[in-house]
Amino acid sequence: MQTKANVVYGVMVFFLSGLFLVSCSAEDGETGPAGPAGPQGEQGPAGPAGADGADGADGADGQDGAQGDTGTANVIYSDWIDSEFDTNITDPAAGVDLSAPGLTQEIIDEGTVLVYGRNIVLPSPEIFPLPQIISGDNHGFRVNGVGNIRLTIASLDGSAVGSRVMEDYRYILIPGGQPDGGGGGITIKSSTYDFSKMSYEEVAALFGIED
């Protein structure tokens, strides 16, 4: 009887062991859901800084671009101002004051003052740099002081000036121009200009002045 009981016990142990192995097989049943994430651990010390990258090129040829000439940010110019001269001047000379608020002592001492007169009566308007001799009359100007330009007209033969030629005027104030020490031009940044030999259109294009 004892031997039979032992045999039955062994068979049962073998059978239960098989069931246990089958129930633990990876192919039996689906994987359960993942558990909640644990708390984040402490952050470790920062690593050493990397080496600086190489500087980029300044331009296509790797060189700094050349600095441009003085632009309109440094130049002061007025609108076209209607002439205050009489339409018919009966005297041999006349003058009127032109207000120029931007004309400083520094510009008088170191800069350049340009004045232009415009004839808008002719079929083709013309702009003349002053001083200018037209029809026997000398049209000019002088700087009277800070903020003031004096426009003048005088006949060359002492007769009456007669009808005025200029209908309006414009001034251009260029600060900081320095004599070039040679041909009488004015050096602005690295370029030299002789404004007495330039037309109004050339000066306006140089400084980006619009009518």
Rank of each mutant, 00 (worst) to 15 (best):
M1K: 06
Q2C: 04
K4L: 15
K4H: 03
A5Y: 14
V7F: 03
G10V: 08
V11T: 08
V11S: 03
M12A: 11
M12L: 11
L16F: 15
G18E: 02
L19I: 08
F20T: 14
F20M: 13
L21K: 10
S23H: 07
S25G: 05
S25F: 13
S25V: 05
D28M: 14
D28T: 04
D28K: 15
G29H: 11
E30F: 04
E30K: 09
T31H: 07
P33G: 03
P33C: 12
P33N: 09
P36V: 06
P36S: 10
P36R: 04
Q40G: 07
Q40I: 02
G41K: 06
E42D: 05
Q43E: 12
G47S: 10
P48I: 06
P48E: 14
G50Y: 05
G50H: 04
A51W: 03
A51P: 13
D52V: 09
G53C: 04
G53Y: 07
A54E: 14
D58H: 12
D58G: 05
G59Y: 07
G62W: 13
Q63D: 07
Q63H: 03
Q63N: 10
G65V: 09
A66D: 11
Q67D: 10
G68R: 11
G68L: 09
G68T: 08
D69Q: 13
G71K: 13
T72V: 13
N74Q: 12
N74A: 10
D79C: 01
I81K: 13
I81R: 02
D82A: 14
D86L: 12
T87I: 13
T87C: 08
N88C: 04
T90Y: 02
D91Q: 15
A93G: 03
S99V: 14
A100D: 02
A100L: 05
P101M: 07
T104V: 01
T104F: 04
I107H: 10
D109P: 00
E110L: 05
G111I: 07
G111Q: 11
T112M: 10
T112G: 03
V113P: 02
V113F: 02
L114A: 04
V115R: 01
Y116A: 00
G117P: 02
N119V: 06
I120L: 02
V121R: 15
V121N: 15
L122M: 15
P123W: 06
I127V: 14
Q132V: 03
S135Y: 05
S135D: 12
N138I: 05
H139L: 13
G145M: 12
V146K: 15
I149Y: 07
I149S: 14
L151H: 03
T152R: 11
I153T: 14
I153W: 02
L156M: 10
L156P: 01
D157R: 05
S159I: 07
A160M: 06
V161P: 02
M166C: 12
D168T: 12
R170T: 00
R170G: 00
I172K: 12
P175L: 11
G177C: 13
Q178K: 14
Q178L: 11
P179Q: 05
D180A: 06
G181R: 04
G181P: 11
G182P: 01
G183V: 10
G183N: 15
G184K: 14
G184L: 11
G185S: 12
G185T: 11
I188W: 03
S191C: 03
D194H: 03
F195S: 06
S196Y: 09
K197L: 06
M198H: 00
M198C: 01
S199P: 05
Y200L: 00
F207K: 01
G208T: 04
E210S: 00
D211L: 01
